[in-house]
Amino acid sequence: MAVDTNMNVLIVDDYATMLRIVRNLLKQIGFENVDEATDGAQALQKMKLKKYGLVISDWNMEPMTGIQLLREVRNDPDLKPTPFIMVTAESKTENVVEAKKAGVSNYIVKPFNSDTLKGKIASVLGAF
């Protein structure tokens, strides 16, 4: 199944620069409908108001971290099926294990390149 690049994508990061980078990379891949949130709580609020086909979130944010957001999403029956990719500098095994336990769809370690982002999105949503 081909990826629907018209879907709404939510990117979550507390670094404005990173939001801009990911937004631009997504735009180059073909995603035009991209929203931003600067922490987990803000992302959760947006997810309850609008349906997103993909969430790409950082881990290390305050007050609500990426892993907390992921748990909230997976515990909410309406949001549970949303594909969720963690993009983070946290690269220890325990981080990846914890994210997997919480139900992450895929995991990208920063710094990353466009091909990695595209590849991980394809592995979650299907080929482009």
């Binding site: 620069t17 990173m18 980078i21 290390n60 500098a89 710094p111 990353f112 466009s114």
Partner: peptide, 20 residues
């Protein structure tokens, strides 16, 4: 041009790592 721009975006992620 777009390949070059992509490389620029990728390289800019250093700022996030530096900040952390």
């Amino acid at each position: 041009a777009m390949n070059a721009v992509t490389s620029i975006y990728e390289a800019c992620s250093f700022q996030d790592i530096t900040g952390q």
